[in-house]
Amino acid sequence: MEPTPSDKTAESEIAFQARIDAGETIEPRDWMPERYRKQLVRMMSQHAHSEVVGMLPEGNWITRAPSLRRKIGLLAKVQDEAGHGLYLYGAAETLGVSRDEMIDQLLAGVSKYSSIFNYPTLTWADVGAIGWLVDGAAIVNQTMLAKTSYGPYARAMLRICAEENFHKRQGFEILATLAQGTPEQRAMAQDAVNRWWWPTLMMFGPPDEASPHSAELMGWKVKPKSNDELRQRFVDLAVPQAKAMGLTLPDPELRWDEEKRQWRFGTIDWQEFWRVVRGDGQMNRERLRERRRAHDEGRWVREAAEAHEAKRRARAAAKIGR
């Protein structure tokens, strides 16, 4: 009797899981469950969108950076983010989705990006806070993803991790300099940290019980560690760094747990998290509006480049008499 398609699929899925369990890397043309492919496209494209949208809150301060060194450093950082977006879109494309499709989904509000970028950057100190906290959190997440089971994603992560470290150090240096500066600079730094701390903790996502995708992704070694584990690791890194800068964190419940050897922290306001994820953060509309405008206004440029090349090829073909 012929095996039914679902029998064949079940067999392939067992073989696939065995590869995963053996620690093998999955490459673009390997067989994979449709759900695995879908989840990866979702993760990689959202990650790419986050890099690109993430250019906006910091880009907001490039023109006003208060020293040449800071101007150059910030521009280099934001440029890196564009590069990271390119790596990630490239990695996602290996699974059969085009850059155009992904951009369309972003601009239509269908595909998401990290909610942290829906918060406004209000002062120069916010640039430091983003570098130290947001990039710091991203590094914790990305270091874990460098071991993800899907090859192109893991390789993109390795590149990104190598470049990301300077972002975090730059952010730390900006804040530390402010903290040691005039009283106004110090107040500016503390205010920025107060506003960015909790949203950064939310970046790691809801607690694992409330997270629909977590279990599946961990089973496929797409996401080797849980949201809560990563969040804890980040807090444990950040608390001594804040102390080193001479700034406080806006959490009265922050306490060292001697037994578990970790920092216990207060309750996250998950209502705020969901509100912002669902589109009601302060900058949600504006971020997408800016991206839409850039995309629309750029269309004639993209078309011109394509047209120019088409003409060149036609001329070359005509010469050969084809």
């Binding site: 590069g83 390119l86 790596y87 490239g90 990695a91 494309e93 850059r99 390789r155 993109a156 590149r159 993209r302 480049a305 394509e306 120019h308 090349e309 060149r312």
Partner: peptide, 19 residues
Amino acid sequence: AGSIHAPDREMALQNARDV
């Protein structure tokens, strides 16, 4: 190293270098 999008050879080289 990875992939890029470009309309022609010249931009492909320059983009590859930038990325």
